[in-house]
Design a protein around this nucleic acid. Sequence first.
RNA 1: CGGGGUGUAGCUCAGCCUGGUAGAGUGCCUGCUUUGGGAGCAGGAUGUCGGCGGUUCGAGUCCGUCCACCCCGACCA
Length: 441
Amino acid sequence: MRLSQYFLPVLRENPKEAEIVSHRLMLRAGMVQQASAGIYSWLPLGFRVLKKIEQIVREEQNAALAQEVLMPTIQSADLWRESGRYDDYGKEMLRITDRHERDMLYGPTNEELITDIFRTHVRSYRDLPLNLYHIQWKFRDEVRPRFGVMRGREFLMKDAYSFDTDFEAARAAYNRMFVAYLKTFARMGLTAIPMAADSGPIGGDLSHEFIILADTGESEVFYHRDWEDLTWQDQDIDYAGDLQPIVDRWTNTYAATDEMHDPATCPVVGDDLRRRRGIEVGHIFHFGTKYSAPLGARVATSDGHEVDVFMGSYGIGVSRLVGAVIEASHDEDGIIWPAAVAPFQVGVVNLKADDATCAQASANLHEQFETAGVDCLLDDRDERAGAKLATMDLIGLPWQIIVGPRGMKNGVVEVKERATGERTEMTPEAALAKLTAAAGG
RNA sequence: CGGGGUGUAGCUCAGCCUGGUAGAGUGCCUGCUUUGGGAGCAGGAUGUCGGCGGUUCGAGUCCGUCCACCCCGACCA
């Protein structure tokens, strides 16, 4: 993509409505535009990142034996009356009336709909286990939306729902999602710490929030310092096998949100106990028959009984993650995208647009990256060098190739790694080879 | 939902107290000079001063009312 043709409305100054860093940077980098409070349009750069994150989530859900469906944003109130939640759910639920005066709502969540799908089609234990997920926009009419896309009213979310005949099978389903979440966040370059969460009486120990650490996080978290050395080692997971050992390994070390943390009973003391802020990016929990019972979602067991199906639900805040990644990865010059979610892998900067040698060399590099399947943004605008470099730092592509007349005299370009600022001179061919390899192309 | 605040050019803001021709910086357009970290000079375009009502000879400015947005708290993926 050539920047001269790309819609990237960057701002030099901070819009005043944005307080926290991810919100500021997303507006300045031309990723989103607020449409109204807590509701955003996604511009090309932001949309690319959103889709990258969504795709990673999708791939890991599929790998973990979940199947993708798509449920609507607008739901009928009838199902919610059946589950008893129509009156319970407060003003966060956006209620709508259609032309026939029927009560409708913009879904804040999908337990009712998915349970309806299940009860309509599934009658036997032989059809289980089953896990259905979708990635869809939701709406919660928060009193006070803030933090940009991290706490919007409209947000893109993945939620999965598992169905099992008994608690032990439900635990296995829970474990599959637990491990899938570890893999998902690790792929995005994030360390997400699973923290025991309050699930009420039904869930037992089967409720975890996945929290990434960031100083601007919304909530306070406590954890053993061993977490700082615990990183996910990529490995092939057999989702049909027993995942309990992996889950145990990732739950044995203390970590808790402030609601769950009790200094009186906390097993970690002194320097070992770390206290920081975090952002919740995922939440998984088992809720048993809470919805299956009122909605009549039952299956026949092998011995001919009928049981209310055991369910769990597993959410990931996809649009929130865009902001969360930035909170976790930026500096004073702008965003620093982890490669896996970067909108482009490489930015080629032609410092001098009217220099034939530079123009040729940068255009060649751009074309060769595209041919190699590496997303590349070529800054071919007739701008000052400083402005172009500042823009490139702001939008945070993992690698920059700086092509200028000074280097071209010696046949070299400069390769800059955004995260470290480290610059190396090399020939364009070497730069191409290095970054194509780095991008896994 | 309680408390506080802000709406003036694409963006950041001054002007309002004390009513009298709509401003600055940046961005944008044109030209020239520049060209390795947001350049210099010259010229140019841009506003229903958030909406409605009122007071006044006259309202961006005073009064009323509505709306939008932001911040703190409570609440939440």
